[in-house]
């Protein structure tokens, strides 16, 4: 059965890109455009992995990540942070307020092979 990946990014172009890339590589995908939308989709879609942008309207990636990791049901879902702001790599490099570190940080623009290999490791 195909592994499920939830793509969370406010930019439609990036969502379309990731959707195409992951679908072509055998993943089942769902997309969300902000943190609030993402949490609804987590409940409905039950992803094996979340690829998460950070700066988004309504609820940012940081807010979503906190809610996800504090949730009793969904805290085990691995997360790959995908952001163009390199400062977030430092931001997430250590545990914050008892939250675990994300599984991976991938910087935009990214290499498709690099992202796919990280996705593969995370959904195993």
């Amino acid at each position: 059965m195909a592994k499920k990946v939830l793509i969370v990014d406010d930019e439609e172009d990036v969502r379309t890109y990731l959707n195409s890339l992951l679908s072509n590589n055998g993943y089942e995908t769902e997309m969300a455009e902000d943190g609030e939308d993402a949490f609804r989709k987590v409940k409905k879609f039950g992803p094996n992995l979340v690829i998460l942008d950070i700066i988004m309207p309504n609820q940012s990636g940081v807010g979503f990540y906190r809610n996800l990791k504090k949730s009793e049901i969904y805290s085990d879902i691995p997360v790959i942070i995908l952001s163009g702001v390199t400062a977030y790599k430092d931001f997430f490099a250590r545990e914050r307020g008892g939250l675990p570190k994300p599984q991976e940080f991938v910087e935009k623009p990214f290499s498709t092979n690099d992202l796919l290999s990280k996705v593969e490791v995370c959904v195993k």
Partner: peptide
């Protein structure tokens, strides 16, 4: 430019 490159890569 990084953001735009991601968009172009995607396109």
């Amino acid at each position: 430019i990084k953001n735009i490159l991601t968009g172009l890569d995607g396109g």
